[in-house]
């Protein structure tokens, strides 16, 4: 355990009746690190965040946040963490300004006292300060919820799926804000189902079915994908997919944006071999390029194991 760790979790397990939500999850997050938990809905992200925010008690294992035990020291810990639950938890019938000053007062502080921390975010919604939170767009709600979670200057910020259901533009802006907060020295744990957001984190944990499959930097995760990967395009994408799946040597075939990501069972594969096969199968405009894997490729490879 590093002395500089902000969050340390050791073999956390949690079950709800017969459903296993978390199984032996261990990891640590450094101070000032931006750490992402990447995984689909139901993978255990929310349960993990609720344990770290003292809302749930783990069945086994233990966790420390900012040096405090999440079960024993929960009262002290609650003063130090900022938490934004999955649904933006705002009072819909209170205005932007009222929500903010309410959450400030709950933590025994004032908006003025910590305004410097939230200024960058809050100025974007300040023009709507007298609007009811329920009437804000998704992106605005997200910014207000983040301001509320920050208003007491927490040392650790836990954001559970802050970008779910928010459009691509707002998501981008949100990540920019997180990067700025990181530079202010706040440790940030964020969960997301969007694989493309992994690249923005210092380190990520890939989580599926309650198990932490891999924890590393995005670059290392990508490099750990050890099979040659090809990006293939052709005129008719659906036929390309089905044809490749019918190829006896195909290991994995997944649609990926504009191309199809392909790995082969053989150790030595030349793009020309694939082009040959596809053209013989009647596909046109075939292009095969060796490419580097992304976090999503790695995630799917781990899921397949």
């Amino acid at each position: 355990m590093s002395a500089n760790a902000s969050v340390v979790a050791t073999e956390l397990s949690k079950a709800f009746k017969a459903t296993r939500a978390l199984a032996d999850v261990s990891f640590s997050v450094e101070r000032g690190e931006l750490f992402g938990f990447i995984g689909p809905d139901g993978s255990g992200k929310t349960t993990l965040f609720r344990i770290l925010t003292t809302l749930l008690v783990p069945d086994a294992g233990e966790a420390f946040v900012d040096g405090l035990h999440v079960v024993r020291d929960y009262r002290e810990l609650r003063k130090r963490i900022g938490y934004m639950p999955g649904r933006f938890s705002l009072y819909q019938d209170l205005t932007v300004a009222e929500n903010l000053s309410f959450f400030a007062s709950v933590f025994g502080t004032t908006v003025e006292e910590n305004y410097d921390l939230i200024r960058d975010i809050y100025v974007q919604i300040e023009p709507f300060r007298d609007r009811k939170a329920g009437k804000l767009s998704g992106g605005m709600k997200q910014k207000l919820a983040l301001s509320c979670a920050l208003i007491h200057r927490p040392t650790v910020l836990l954001l559970d799926e802050p970008t779910t259901g928010v459009d691509a533009v707002s998501r981008r802006e949100f990540w920019d804000m997180l990067l700025r907060l990181k530079s202010a020295g706040i440790s940030i744990l964020v969960s997301t189902p969007y694989m493309d957001e992994a690249r923005l984190c210092d380190r990520v944990g890939l989580i599926q079915n309650g198990t932490l499959m891999q924890v590393d930097t995005p670059a290392n995760i990508e490099n750990s994908f050890d099979r040659p990967l090809f990006g293939i395009t052709a005129q008719d994408r659906y036929r390309l997919l089905t044809t490749l799946r019918g190829y006896p040597f195909a290991n994995s075939v997944y649609a990926f944006g504009e191309s199809v990501h392909y790995t082969d069972r053989r150790n030595e594969v030349e793009p020309s071999m694939l082009v040959d096969f596809l053209q013989k199968s009647g596909l046109t405009d075939v292009a095969v390029r060796p490419i580097g894997a992304g976090v999503e490729d790695a995630f799917m490879a781990l899921m397949d194991e």
Binding site: G39, P40, D41, G42, S43, T164, G165, P193, M195, Q208, R237, Y238, L241, Y254, A255, E296, F299, M300, M303, D304
Partner: peptide, 24 residues
Amino acid sequence: DEPTGGVDPITRRQFWDMIYETAA
């Protein structure tokens, strides 16, 4: 309407296979 929100990456692709089949 956002049929694949929160779905894991493999299932998401299987879902798109279904979309392709349907369109075909």
